[in-house]
Each structure stands twice: as C-alpha cells, then as structure tokens.
C-alpha cells in the first residue's frame, strides 16, 4: 500500500506529468497519448488491479485560466487491494477528445456519455455517444463554466 502514484511514475516516467497525494488522495496526471496503455495496465496488472472504475467526470478550468481547459478525472478502485487512485488527463478546448475507456470498464459507457453531455468532451471509440441527461434539442453543454446556470431552452411553454 501507499505511494501508488510513485509506482506509476516509476513505471511510466515519461507519461506522468504531475503527481500529488494531497489530503491522502493519490493522484496522477497522465499524458493523453499514453492514457489507454497505462489504464489497461492499471486494470490488468496484479500490482495495481483496479477492477473498478468508480467515477469518471470532468472539470472545466475556464474560470481559473487552466491552459488545457478541461481535466477528465477518473477514480479507480481495487477491490482486492482496497486502494484508490485518481487519474487525470488534460484536454484542450479546441481538441476536446479523449480515448474511450469502454473497452476496459463497461460503466465508462454511461459516464462518458454524461461527460459528453455536460462538458462536450468527445470520446474516441465510444460505441454510442449521445446525450444522456439532457434532450437532443438542447444546445450547448450546461456544466461548462460559460453556460449561464439559468439559461433555459424549453421544449414547450414560454421561452425562459
């Protein structure tokens, strides 16, 4: 146990951009190009054994002036080893594209649909990327910081 993120750094020194264990949550920031390979290893390698993708979400850093604007955040959990790891990947606004994790964890399907719906980040290789919470007529991605929180797009009834 412990220092998971150091072990990740040791194994893929070129791919880990940043790491910290602020408040006990071990975190690594990965390069997007190596994402699929490393995630596959994290899942299948008995050293890590992350069978569960607990959560997948994104953060829009527009208000903080993050340079790659988005961070896609994965929370991994290992049932056998009872440890957790947070994996983050940064994506640009212009090139908001992530490799899919659906081939590794089935749940990534819906989580990725939600991230696409809420943030407009596409997932390459996702079998069925469409909106999940909002309706098809909805324009924009509501959890982006530049979407006003009360800008309504009603299907029926008065506009706003």
């Amino acid at each position: 146990m412990g220092n998971l993120h150091d072990r990740v750094k040791e194994r893929w020194p070129h791919a880990v951009l940043e790491l910290h264990d602020d408040r006990g949550d071990e975190t690594v920031v990965l390069m997007r190009d190596d994402f699929t390979v490393i995630m596959k290893a994290l899942k299948e390698d008995p050293e890590f054994d992350f069978q569960m993708l607990m959560d997948l979400t994104a953060v829009d850093g527009k208000d903080l002036g993050w340079k790659p604007r988005f961070e896609v955040v994965y929370h991994l959990y290992s049932l056998s080893k009872n440890h957790r790891l947070r994996v983050k990947v940064r994506v640009n606004e212009r090139d908001a594209l992530m490799p899919t994790a659906t081939t590794l964890w089935a749940i990534a399907d819906w989580f990725e649909r939600e991230v696409w719906d809420m943030f407009g980040i596409r997932f390459e290789g996702h079998p069925d990327l469409r909106r999940i919470l909002m309706y098809d007529e909805f324009v924009g991605h509501p959890l982006r910081k530049d979407y006003p929180h009360n800008k309504r797009q009603p299907l029926i009834g008065p506009k706003n």
Partner: peptide, 13 residues
Amino acid sequence: YNNYATVQGIDTI
C-alpha cells in the same frame, strides 16, 4: 431549482 433544466412552475404549461 432556478436553473437551465427545470420548469418554473407547471402553470406555464
């Protein structure tokens, strides 16, 4: 719930 997703009173419909 004054937000983008919620109807502001069903009497609008």
